[in-house]
Each structure stands twice: as structure tokens, then as C-alpha cells.
Design a protein around this nucleic acid. Structure first.
Length: 286
DNA sequence: CGGTGAACCTGGCCGC
DNA sequence: TGCGGCCAGGTTCACC
């Protein structure tokens, strides 16, 4: 599932293969792939036509392609299964091909948005003076952003009356962390997912943040995480960080620190993986 | 308005 | 073989 490292890999691929190319035309093959565009998919496609793409940017799991001289950007979210692929024109259409963007040049490749579960999508928005599409103004900076404010994060997290994993997944507090890297950061920090945030000390929160950064940087350095063929980077290559995960998806396997079997617990309509010995539950568990 | 939890969606997989 | 049910989970939104 694409989280921050995977999305960053895609962004780099787009920077290499798509930036500075002019859109010849766009074709929307599934209406759900274009979001929040009240005037419809055809209008969306029409508005891309003839514009040159600037340098792709990313915040958390969102990435966007500025359309030069329009004040607008194409915002993309990959959801759970979205892929942005650069393919030769003649490559056969993927089973879940949703959007196709052709360019006005002779490079012979096109950009494709492919998405099985249709949780992802593209949309078009005004770019704010800060360079951010207006609809993601509420998304916090991510921990790999040089301007991420660690102290601000500590204070904001401790003010929340919630539990630590919920806070890690709250994109208005910190962005880019999904279920996988939340479990990995918590395992590294030896914190149980249900620990109340107000009880965490400043050093504990800073340590957790550091682990989140470390694990995402490690994933980024090997090209993202992939568990199946759903996620591939912009050139269609899978990452292989899943070999390095310590908690996520390891139910019943020994904890790399103490050997205790990793457990899986149903949590918020999904799963939490943790070591019952290294990550003790709070005394009063919700 | 902060916290909570359901809905959205499809295909792979498992058990019967 | 076929089919029902479960599971994956980021974001949005309704509700309290």
C-alpha cells in the first residue's frame, strides 16, 4: 500500500519522466478516478490539454503536478492500490486503467493512472501562494519535510485526547504515516498502539518521531514497500522493503528483539501488529 | 468542534 | 467448481 516512501518514489519517477512535458490530451476511462470535479471528467481532461507540467511535488501521501501558467495543479492520491505508470503508447491497457495522459512530444510514452480498488483518484485544484493545492491545506507537513516542526508536533500530539496510533494516522497532525509505518515506528519505539497521547513524555514522542523518520527513510532507500503486485513505482518496478518489516504482517513470527510471537489485533476496521512483550498495553485499555 | 466509527471499493484467498 | 464471506485500509463524512 502506498504510504509516504512509495509516493515519494513515484514522485521522483514523475520528475524524471513526465515533468516539463506538454499534455496533448487526457482520457478518463472511469468516472470515479476523477474526484471533486463538479463539471465532470470530460471537463477535467479538457483543462489539462495544452499545458506544460512543472516539477512534481508531494506532501505526505498526496502528490501533484503543477500545470504551468494556469495557477492550477493536478492532485493525485493513490489510495490503496493506485499506480502512476509511464508506459509506451503501444503497451496494452492495464485491466484497471482509469486515466490516460498523452503528451505533445516524440518520446513515445504516456502517463497512466491505474487503480484496482478505486480509492485513489486525480483532481484539479487552484494552487495556493504556498505552492500547495488548496484542498490539502489541512494536511500537516510530513516527517521528511525539512520544515516539519518537531516541537510543534510534540505539543500538538500531547494535547490530543486520543491514543498514540490514532494520532500517528491523523494526517492533520503528521502526514504520510499509514498503518504499516505506524506499526513499525511503534515497534521500534516499544510503544503499544493504545497508549494515551497525553501520558507520553516529550522525549518519548521525539523518539517515536525519530523512529517514524528512520523507518520511512529506510523504505525510501530501497524504493518503497510492496506486498503484492498492487504497488509498483512509476516504471512498473516493485519495491522490496517488506523483507525488512519488523512487526507489520508478521503475526505468529518471532519478535526480532525478544523472540516473542508478534500478535495481530483487530483495530479500527483494520489490524495492528505488535510485540506483546516489548510493547506493553496500557493498564486501562480502551 | 474534537473524537469516533462507518462507508467507500474490488479481487484474492479460504473454507465449505 | 462454485460461492459466500473475510480481508486489505486512507479518507471523508455523519454523528454525538
Amino acid at each position: 500500500m502506498p504510504e509516504l516512501p512509495e509516493v515519494e518514489v513515484v514522485r521522483r519517477g514523475l520528475e524524471r519522466w513526465v515533468a516539463h512535458r506538454t499534455v496533448a490530451d487526457a482520457e478518463v476511462l472511469h468516472p470515479r478516478a476523477v474526484r471533486r470535479h463538479l463539471t465532470g471528467a470530460d471537463d477535467f481532461a479538457h483543462r489539462l490539454k495544452g499545458h506544460r507540467i512543472g516539477t512534481p511535488s508531494r506532501r505526505g501521501k498526496y502528490l501533484w503536478l503543477p500545470l504551468e501558467d494556469t495557477g492550477q495543479s493536478v492532485l493525485a492520491h493513490l489510495g490503496m492500490s493506485g499506480q502512476l505508470l509511464v508506459q509506451p503508447h503501444e503497451a496494452p491497457a492495464e485491466k484497471h486503467l482509469r486515466v490516460r495522459v498523452r503528451f505533445a512530444d516524440d518520446l513515445g510514452t504516456e502517463l497512466r493512472f491505474v487503480d484496482q480498488r478505486t480509492f485513489g483518484g486525480l483532481s484539479l485544484h487552484d494552487t495556493t501562494p504556498g505552492g500547495l493545492p488548496d484542498v490539502i491545506a489541512h494536511i500537516a507537513r510530513d516527517p521528511l519535510d525539512p520544515l516539519f516542526d518537531d516541537e510543534l508536533f510534540v505539543q500538538a500530539l500531547r494535547r490530543r485526547r486520543t491514543t498514540v496510533k490514532r494520532a500517528l494516522l491523523d494526517q492533520s497532525l503528521i502526514s504520510g504515516v499509514g498503518n504499516i509505518y505506524a506499526d513499525e515506528a511503534l515497534w521500534r519505539a516499544r510503544l503499544h498502539y493504545d497508549r494515551p497521547t497525553p501520558a507520553l513524555t516529550r522525549p518519548r514522542v521525539l523518539e517515536l518521531l525519530g523512529h517514524a523518520r528512520d523507518v520511512m527513510n529506510a523504505a525510501l532507500s530501497v524504493g518503497g514497500t510492496s506486498f503484492d503486485s498492487l504497488y509498483v513505482n512509476v516504471n512498473g518496478e516493485s519495491g522490496y522493503f517488506d523483507r525488512s518489516l519488523d512487526a507489520y504482517g508478521r503475526e505468529g513470527l518471532p519478535c526480532g528483539r525478544c523472540g516473542t510471537a508478534i500478535r495481530r489485533r483487530a483495530w479500527m476496521n483494520r489490524s495492528s501488529y505488535f510485540c506483546p512483550r516489548c510493547q506493553r498495553a496500557p493498564r486501562v485499555s480502551s
